[in-house]
Design a protein around this nucleic acid. Structure first.
Length: 581
RNA sequence: GCGCCCGUAGCUCAGUGGAUAGAGCGUUAGGUUGCGGACCUAAAGGCCGUGAGUUCGAGUCUCGCCGGGCGCGCCA
């Protein structure tokens, strides 16, 4: 079994990469904290407990950029508890920050100006020289630019897709695949150790049912009505090896079991291949059967038993979920001696925590929401922290064709496969489509509409910006122009260039927000915004100008940094960053 | 009936309690004798489902209602 602590392949980072630079927002926040302490030291402000300051001292990007690069509402938030007018608090902080700026050597300070505005907002303006230095650091960080050192790094198990291997993945599974993979990438880049895990059932009634369908088809009998009817079943039946077929049809053999096991493993391998085509890879494939083989379910039941959380009734073993607020108790082991699906889940929980994870992230379909409470309750009963068990419910995707819902049924064989979807709209457009939306909103997915719209997908707008920059850099090289080794002096007198630079600097903050919220849609939004800023810059500023090599070199450096931010953002999204289109 | 999720521009969707609610598509009117026009500029388009409440401040938090989705098994 792979080491859960090892980072997964896709985002493994060469040890030679320098440490990522500290995000600007964190620096500004630190400055604000220091300003408060300075003001408290001189008696201008009362001291606050550290925690309270930290919560209130958040800085945000103002909607109106003339209000500065960052804004703080700390004076408004603390006015009441301190019993002081907000503007007075803001003035005291502004004075402390201004004193610091005055004392600093020119070109070393992060902030250039601070002002109090409106009812007591504190508007903070970055120093252009700081932006120049920060961008130089970004270019030097290269592929690592945007990545973070987590404030509290965790070992996170992300379990997603986990569709039963009774048929190929369809587009209903696609959303979970993209969202889970994206979230895993985001958490990894934010400095956490992530393991991607796929859980599947290899011995339940559905697998037997699949085996029965394969058997029937192979034997030339009609498939049972409640069996599986998709075209892939015929392919499976035709592919059954001779010796397996002989074993399955021998007297006394359990054909459904034997064929089901074989077929589900074959289907599982197909699922793995489909996912790989999406750029989605898993570190661990965990089967439900292995939980029993390793005695994990029994272990979990003992733990619950020892905690007094189980009782027997009507011959079944029940978990006292109501003790923890559930509306009914839940059966762990049926009266026939078989464990329930919930029983497996509890064993799996013990398995995951036993492998050393701090946090278990589950991505489940919205239809499983009813089972969230019992899982977290069981975790609590066994002595784990229920908050370390996090379940994200992915909203449903309804498939419509010309406005009419298309019902998808794996059993009936009526569904659009993931592979078919990708053949129609491509991986990049599909990744963007699902990554740009919150996972809690239901989607009506019209395959015909998606085909028409894929050409208008904003992903191409972003890729185009990247390709355009690549083209500029090629052109410059032909002209014998190279990017300057440093941006020093490039931004102070050019607001257009400064605006682009500030856009580049936002990447680590966007990533940090995405990781904190466990939401990914900020990344596509950021990529679109940065591409827009770049296109406007391109219109207003000529980058390659043989008549002015000095300015060209500085702008090439800036454009290089922009390309890096775009490429790294697209990389996080698992989307190609082409040099030409 | 109970529980969870969703409701924002014509459409698809963003919007960590903060300043004048945004983007893409679509519509309308413009833009290239310079590095990629898959681009750029501008306009029109909003009782943020609805009613109360909390707050200095609500699209965001609380409660009710309306509309939609999904659940409520000794199935998985």
């Amino acid at each position: 079994m792979p080491d859960p602590r090892a980072p997964s392949g896709a985002s493994q980072q060469p040890a030679s990469d320098p440490a990522p630079p500290e995000p600007t927002r964190r620096r500004v926040q630190t400055l604000l904290e220091e300003a408060w302490h300075a003001a408290a030291g001189s008696g201008a402000l009362p001291p606050l407990p550290g925690e309270a300051i930290e919560a209130a001292l958040e800085v945000a990007r103002p909607a109106d950029l003339t209000h500065g690069d960052y804004a703080s509402a700390v004076a408004l938030k603390t006015a009441r508890p301190l019993g002081r007018p907000p503007r007075a608090i803001a003035e005291a902080l502004a004075a402390a920050l201004a004193a610091r700026i005055d004392r600093a050597d020119p070109g070393t300070e992060v902030l250039a100006a601070v002002e109090v505005a409106g009812p007591g907002f504190l508007n903070l303006h970055l120093a252009p020289t700081y932006v120049e230095r920060a961008l130089d650091a970004a270019v030097e960080a290269g592929p690592a630019y945007g990545r973070l050192r987590a404030v509290g790094p965790r070992r996170i198990n992300v379990e997603f897709v986990s569709a039963n291997p009774t048929g190929p993945l369809h587009i209903g599974n696609a959303r979970g695949a993209f969202v889970g993979d994206l979230l895993a990438r985001v958490l990894e880049a934010a400095g956490h150790a992530v393991t991607r895990e796929y859980y599947f059932n290899d011995f339940g009634s559905q697998v037997r049912n699949l085996g029965g369908s394969v058997r029937a088809l192979r034997a030339g009998e009609p498939i049972p009505q409640d069996g599986y009817h998709g075209g892939y079943v015929a392919e499976l039946a035709a592919a059954v090896p001779q010796d397996l077929w002989a074993a399955a049809t021998a007297p006394g053999a359990d054909a459904e079991e034997l064929l089901g096991r074989w077929a589900s493993e074959r289907v599982r391998a197909g699922i793995e291949a489909s996912l790989a085509r999406l750029g989605v890879r898993f570190d661990v494939w965990k089967s439900e059967g292995s939980l029993y083989a390793e005695g994990l379910v029994a272990q979990a039941v003992e733990r619950l038993q020892a905690a007094g959380a189980l009782y027997e009734e009507d011959g079944a073993l029940w978990f006292r979920s109501t003790t923890f607020g559930d509306d009914k108790d839940r059966v762990v082991r049926r009266s026939n001696g078989d464990y329930t699906y919930f029983g497996s889940d509890v064993g799996y929980l013990v398995d995951k925590f036993g492998r050393g994870f701090d946090e278990l992230l589950y991505l489940w379909g919205q239809d499983h929401h009813g089972t969230v409470a019992r899982l977290r309750n069981a975790a609590e009963a066994m002595g784990f922290a229920r908050d370390d068990v996090r379940v994200l419910l992915i909203a449903w995707v309804r498939f419509v064709r010309d406005g009419v819902e298309v019902s998808m049924s794996k059993r009936a064989g009526e569904f659009i496969t993931l592979d078919e979807l990708l053949a129609e709209i491509g991986v990049d457009a599909a990744r963007w489509f699902f990554g740009a939306r919150g996972y809690t909103v239901g989607i009506d997915f019209d395959i015909e509409l998606a085909k028409r719209q894929s050409a208008d997908n904003p992903v191409y707008y972003v890729q185009y910006a990247h390709a355009r920059i690549a083209s500029i850099l090629r052109k410059a090289e032909q002209e014998g122009l190279l990017p300057a080794p440093s941006l020093r002096g490039a931004l102070a007198d050019d607001p257009v260039a400064l605006g682009l630079a500030r856009g580049v600097l936002r990447l680590p903050e966007v990533l940090e927000d995405a990781a904190t919220a466990e939401e990914t849609q900020g990344l596509p939004a950021y990529a679109t915004e940065l591409a827009t800023i770049f296109h406007a810059f391109y219109r207003d500023r000529r980058v390659v100008d043989p008549a002015d090599p000095a300015t060209s070199a500085l702008r090439l450096r800036l454009v290089q940094a922009t390309r890096l931010a775009l490429a790294n953002t697209l990389g996080l999204l698992g989307i190609a960053a082409p040099d030409s289109m």
